[in-house]
Computed example of a mutant assay.
Amino acid sequence: MTLRVGVVGGGQLARMMIAPAVEIGVDLQVLAEQDGMAAQLAASAVGDYRDADTVLEFAKTVDVVTFDHEHVPQPVLRALVDAGVAVHPGPDALQYAQDKLLMRARLDELGMPQPDWAAVSDTAQLQEFLDGHGGRAVVKTPRGGYDGKGVRVVSAATEAEDWFAALAEDARGGRLLVEELVDFRRELSQQVARRPSGQVRAYPVVETIQRDGVCAEVIAPAPHLSAPLSDAAARVGVGIAEGLGVTGMLAVELFETTDDRILVNELAMRPHNSGHWTQDGAMTSQFEQHLRAVLDLPLGDPSPRQEWAVMVNILGGPASGSLDDRLGSVFAAHPAVKVHTYGKDPRSGRKVGHVNAVGDDLDDVAYDARAAASLFQD
């Protein structure tokens, strides 16, 4: 009997689950927005993921429901569970990826290393935090932010007045999250896979390079990372996966501080940009691993295939034409690089694809990936 996985969300993450699903004989169904990238390649239904009846009807066609984003409302998730649908990750775990205030409070309970933080409901409370943390801090909207959205570095509470005003107009009320401005050396990401029966596998910790709040590059494994910090990152990732009851892929975004500590920045409970290198650089890609995990199948080997892998995002794409127009020149100049496109129209700052390069010399691998990605840009 063919196993059937339903993915809520038709973006590039769902799209990249299709190939491994075909390879292992899984029937992948997608509940997509009308212009969803995955809907171009997979059997799909078009509907609103915020509507419980729509999602419940979709769930009737599959054995398990998973996601390519964390935006499905809790009432919809709870309705699925109440109807007996297998949902991975479930609402009890997803709430911590959906609400950063809940996440911070729960990670404190689990004893995870974090920046100093507070929930603030007005400018007076924010200013008090600023005064106690050197006059600068990071303010975040608790829900909905990604790729630098919903995040501000402020040096005066008045710089968040518009966000407080928006909260005041919202019938639900709410608070902002404020965090200390961490003095960090670089950003890291620890990915972990966990299946419902409890098996856990951790990938090598990687370095992520951000530009304008968006992930631009990933180097796997993170160069020059000490063994104690690498082991600590794995312990944190596994501890969070188990402590929150995550099923599927989990990405724990981390700061490596200038005093040789790691601190948890944010969480994603799905395949993640920091794991795209695994498509060509790991024994088991994050996309196949996610499918195995949500179906409660034995997890695959997360070990690297070669010493180094570098992923470079294609941001924006060509000013005219399509990515397809550039493939010939990219393949001719860099035959060892793997290209992954998302079926998106080019737009400034938009993630429209990525390239992966692997090998035994980091300088050569990084050059190949960067040069190939640059050929898609004007």
Rank of each mutant, 00 (worst) to 15 (best):
residue 24 I to C: 13
residue 130 L to E: 04
residue 228 P to N: 09
residue 207 E to P: 07
residue 100 K to P: 04
residue 164 F to R: 08
residue 89 P to A: 02
residue 218 V to R: 11
residue 279 Q to C: 00
residue 196 P to L: 10
residue 93 A to W: 04
residue 294 V to T: 00
residue 7 V to Q: 04
residue 205 V to R: 01
residue 329 S to A: 15
residue 244 L to G: 07
residue 272 H to L: 07
residue 19 A to M: 02
residue 337 V to N: 09
residue 199 Q to K: 04
residue 209 I to N: 01
residue 277 W to P: 07
residue 319 A to H: 06
residue 4 R to I: 12
residue 288 E to L: 11
residue 337 V to A: 08
residue 240 I to V: 12
residue 37 M to W: 14
residue 177 L to D: 05
residue 109 E to G: 14
residue 103 M to L: 00
residue 72 V to A: 03
residue 181 L to K: 07
residue 100 K to L: 00
residue 18 I to K: 05
residue 190 Q to M: 03
residue 291 L to R: 08
residue 57 E to K: 14
residue 192 V to F: 02
residue 26 V to M: 11
residue 123 T to K: 12
residue 46 V to N: 10
residue 265 N to R: 10
residue 51 D to M: 07
residue 227 A to D: 15
residue 261 R to M: 14
residue 104 R to Y: 00
residue 364 D to C: 12
residue 186 R to K: 00
residue 22 V to G: 13
residue 75 P to H: 10
residue 6 G to V: 04
residue 19 A to C: 02
residue 242 E to Q: 11
residue 42 A to L: 08
residue 304 P to Q: 00
residue 32 A to P: 06
residue 92 D to E: 15
residue 223 P to F: 02
residue 311 M to S: 02
residue 89 P to E: 03
residue 323 L to P: 00
residue 199 Q to P: 01
residue 88 H to E: 14
residue 285 S to L: 05
residue 206 V to K: 00
residue 295 L to V: 10
residue 196 P to A: 14
residue 319 A to E: 14
residue 116 D to W: 03
residue 304 P to M: 13
residue 58 F to L: 00
residue 82 D to N: 06
residue 345 D to R: 13
